[in-house]
Amino acid sequence: MKNLILSAAVILSLTFNAAAAIAKPVNDKAQKTFDLLFKDADNVKWSESNSNYEAFFDSEGIKTRVTIDAKGNLLQTIRYYGESNLPANVLYNVKNDYKGKEVFGVTEVTNKNGVNYRIVLKDDKHYTHINANNSGDTELVSKHKRGDK
Rank of each mutant, 00 (worst) to 15 (best):
D148F: 00
Y127Q: 04
N113I: 01
P25E: 09
K63L: 11
G82W: 03
A9Q: 02
Y117Q: 10
E139C: 06
K125Y: 12
T64Q: 07
G105C: 05
L74W: 08
I5L: 14
H144W: 10
N96C: 13
E83M: 03
I62P: 03
K95A: 12
D42M: 13
H129V: 05
H126D: 14
W46Y: 06
V141S: 07
L4Y: 06
L36Y: 10
T128D: 09
L74M: 11
D69V: 00
K63P: 06
T67F: 01
N134T: 06
S59C: 05
N27R: 03
K32D: 14
N50P: 05
S142V: 07
K2P: 08
L36G: 12
T77G: 11
D124F: 03
L37Y: 03
Y80V: 06
R65F: 12
D42F: 08
T107L: 08
N93V: 03
A70E: 14
Y81L: 04
L14S: 06
G114D: 08
R65M: 15
D97E: 12
N85M: 09
L6D: 10
E54N: 08
L14E: 03
G136H: 01
Y81S: 00
E60D: 15
M1P: 12
D42R: 09
D123R: 00
K99M: 05
K101M: 09
A21Q: 13
K101I: 02
N85W: 12
E54L: 05
S51D: 15
N113G: 11
A18Q: 13
D137I: 12
V90A: 00
S7L: 09
N111E: 05
K99Y: 00
A70V: 04
L86V: 04
N113W: 02
N27G: 05
N43P: 03
L86K: 04
G82R: 01
A23P: 11
V141Y: 06
A9M: 08
K32C: 07
A9V: 10
D40N: 11
V115S: 02
T67E: 10
N111F: 01
F57Q: 03
K145T: 09
D58Q: 14
K2H: 11
S142Y: 09
N131W: 09
K112V: 10
N116Y: 08
K149T: 05
K95F: 00
T77R: 15
L37P: 01
D35Y: 06
A9Y: 01
V66M: 07
E54M: 03
V66G: 05
N73V: 03
S84C: 05
K112G: 02
L4K: 09
N116T: 13
P25K: 01
K29N: 15
S49E: 15
A18R: 10
N43W: 04
Y80F: 11
R65Y: 10
N3R: 15
K145Y: 13
S84P: 07
Q76T: 13
I22G: 07
K112L: 12
A21Y: 15
T15S: 15
A41V: 03
N116F: 02
K112Q: 14
R79Q: 14
I119M: 04
G114C: 10
L91W: 02
V141Q: 14
